[in-house]
Design a protein around this nucleic acid. Sequence first.
RNA 1: GGGGGUAUGCUAGAGCGGUCAAAUAGGGCAGACUGUAAAUCUGUUGGCUAUGCCUACGGUGGUUCGAAUCCAUCUGCCCCCA
Length: 425
Amino acid sequence: MDNVFEALNERGFIKQVTNAEQVTRLLAEKQVTYYVGFDPTASSLHVGSLVPIMAMAHLQRAGHKPIAIIGGGTTMIGDPTDKTEMRPMLSKEQISANGKGILAQLQRYLNLDNTLVNAGNSQTPSRVGGFFNNADWLLSINYIEFLRDIGKHFRVNEMIRAEGYKQRLERELGLSFLEFNYQLLQAYDYLYLFREYGCRLQLGGDDQWGNILAGVDLVRRIEAERVHAVTFPLLTTASGAKMGKTAGGAVWLDAERTSPYEFYQYWINVDDRDVSRFLAYFTFLPIDEVRRLGSLEDEAIREAKEVLAYETTRLAHGKAEADKARTASRAAFGGGNLDEAEMPTSVIAAERLNAGIPIMALFHEVGLANSRSEARRLVQQGGAYINEKQCRSIDMVVGTDLLEDNALLLRAGKKRYHRIVLKEN
RNA sequence: GGGGGUAUGCUAGAGCGGUCAAAUAGGGCAGACUGUAAAUCUGUUGGCUAUGCCUACGGUGGUUCGAAUCCAUCUGCCCCCA
């Protein structure tokens, strides 16, 4: 097997490791079962989850066996290290529905079976991974047993020294007992997966370091076995923003929430300074190619961005969609003809247009403005276009006289398009 | 259980009883400049049938000609004591 750990490190995936040498050796010697936890609060993952996903994919390609966990059980508690957002309580049904959506997305990157897989031994050659909801084993836990078997291995002194808890204790926020237990449950996950599936490596965001280590310790104490932890650097964009957020909210992997074209555009529009890092993280291009593209400067960097956008879109949505998105993007910004098929389109009844629609209403209706007032501002400030002609009059009424090929092309600002076609009846 | 504090727009955070749709910063949007980048500059940023009207400053009820601003009460959060 290749030296995956080295490869991951070279691509920037590694922030902390329990023991780099041992992990390198472990991954070189035999097939390793490893796991990553995902948050089941939404039915789709967003680009922020792409770091762990790509890391998992690299490992699987190198012959190792992934397990993805959704934290249906742990979500019911709420991770105190993520104190910015209150997590909503989700029903079991909701969580498993979300799990299905997440699984479908993971399967684009990983070979995962949704039933498990070679229970209990990592010796089998199968590389097919597993996908579980930790609620399956956490919900049935008996409190007294848990305290006695698991709880006794945790020293409160140590726990409150951990950064995540420490901050909460020092700040005014306080920490509920419920949250204080989060770490135990996550540690128990690791123990469970070690016992059942021989899992020996857990990966996660760097904010999870403490929680993952708790699991490593627990396995050592109870099973007297050495298992490992690897964390990824927390990704922010060069401008300091959280990865994957745009004006419209998160960039989702689900094509329903974020169209392949928007997805593609997200990557095209990344900050110059992020390009080479992102190529290493989010594509499978050989590292030499990543370096070559990353070294491009000024205008030439657009080539690198195009590769980044194309590759990421291809991974998330497939080649056909990526091709379409690239064509559409080139057309929209390269001066060529716009590809109508790629644009958000709505249908409008012919008689409505005959009667005339106020421009503000039109922009609002198709979603290029969130309200009529916003549409009004857009027009007043010169950001509204119909068929590439700027419209600055808020009194303008759009009628059939503006039709071109029986359609209207609306544009808001530089990048947002919407096409309207007429429906005769 | 006792005492104290706080609650404002997307976020942070000002706000004398009238001139408050609410300072300021960040964010967002639009324009200029560009490379579909960054930085910079400018405008804008509750809604609407729009020189006016409606809805908003945790909930409810008061005082007042008039309340985001005062009082009561409820709720949430925080701090101190137990």
